[in-house]
Simulated scan of single mutants.
Amino acid sequence: GQQIRLLGESVFSRWKQSVDPGHPFPEKGYHGEYILDLARQISMQEDLGNMAEEDAIAFCSRFGKEKMLEEIRSDLEEFRVHFDTWSSETDLHGSGLLEQSLQALRQRGMVYERDGALWIRTTDYGDDKDRVIRKRDGQYTYFASDISYHLQKRSRGFTGAINIWGADHHGYVQRVKAALNSSGVEEGWLSVLLIQLVKLWKGGQEVKMSKRAGQYVTLRELLEEVGVDAARFVFLTKNHDSTLDFDVDLVKKQDSDNPVYYVQYAHARICSIFRKAAEEGLPVHWDPPPVLGKLTAEEEMALIRNMAEFPPLLEDACGKLEPHRLTYYLADLAGLFHKYFNMGTKNAEYRVINTDDVELSRARLFLAGALRIVLENGLGLLGITAPEKM
């Protein structure tokens, strides 16, 4: 595509400027240290001077694309985001799927020619106008590739698809759905979540970024500074349609202001309670003990009621595609536990382990064990670790 071509031109210009500082840089080219890095890597592997300029730019485009994609894959794996299949527009063209999709649309009478271009009748399915899928010069539009990409997914047997797009693509949603409906895909098969921007804050100031100007913070840099667990938790604290303010300084704190620390610390505290119970020789039975009736404190009842909400909350959050509700739930549950635990540090009567009342200790250990399971499962669903010590 045009953006990959521009990447190649940018890299080539930086390479050329290393021997000819006056060589012009593309007006809309990409800036940033990474372009220089790519040019340096190429200079160590290939002599672009022996190539025609057009061939050199094409080489820079391929090299840059492969290197950037390699970094993206690596960063996502580090972030615990795994994709089973990676697709490219080139694959769609090479596989013949694009032509197959168009042929199917022709058979359904959903395409027509006008002004030398090929159009799809998306207005029949709610779009505000019909769309071009093949330009008069014979080149396919991005829209044609998008249609084929989704049809290929459906042909693999998926009963639904969820797309995550930037908010600036909101005008694209209805036309894609209309195109799929015109291809025989049932209404509701495609769901689109539009995500808002993330604003990064450090030292009380917003970090200004511009991709084209080369001013940005990469995901890897963020992970190196705050860690994968903290980054995942914070990214999941807002609904997809809300702007996210990511405060780096807050996320690095080790106190109740830091939500991920607060939740993980609750799990670690419970693990320490069980280590203490083992030291005291208190037996832990995972079958509900008959002494559970000894749990009478209002704080204990609050924990039990809150844990009982876990299964229906998960079902509802999954059905509505709202994972942020789980982060808030875990933070609330952790807050209840920390309040309960701190009561015991001030008043021995509320301690989980009380050697003077073994039955009460057994009941409270069972409660703590149930809480540990919920916290571990909740964090696990978010792809976040549940540490036993902190």
Rank of each mutant, 00 (worst) to 15 (best):
K199M: 08
K199I: 05
W201E: 15
K202C: 09
G203Q: 13
G203A: 13
G203E: 14
G203S: 13
G204D: 15
Q205T: 14
K208A: 11
K211S: 05
R212Y: 03
G214K: 09
G214C: 10
Q215H: 11
Q215D: 13
Q215P: 03
Y216P: 06
V217F: 14
V217M: 14
R220F: 07
E221Q: 13
L223T: 02
E224W: 00
E225R: 00
E225L: 01
V226K: 02
V226C: 05
V226I: 13
V228F: 04
V228C: 04
D229K: 00
A230I: 02
A230N: 10
A230R: 03
A231W: 12
F233Q: 06
F233V: 08
F233D: 07
V234Y: 04
F235T: 06
L236W: 04
L236Y: 06
L236H: 02
K238I: 08
N239G: 01
D241K: 04
D241E: 09
D241C: 01
D241L: 04
D245C: 10
F246L: 10
D247R: 02
D247E: 15
V248Q: 09
L250Y: 06
L250A: 05
V251A: 04
K253W: 11
K253F: 09
D255G: 14
D255N: 15
D257V: 06
D257W: 08
D257L: 11
Y262A: 03
Y262H: 07
V263S: 12
Q264S: 10
Q264V: 09
A266T: 12
A268K: 06
I273T: 14
F274Y: 15
F274A: 08
F274G: 05
R275K: 15
E279G: 14
E280M: 11
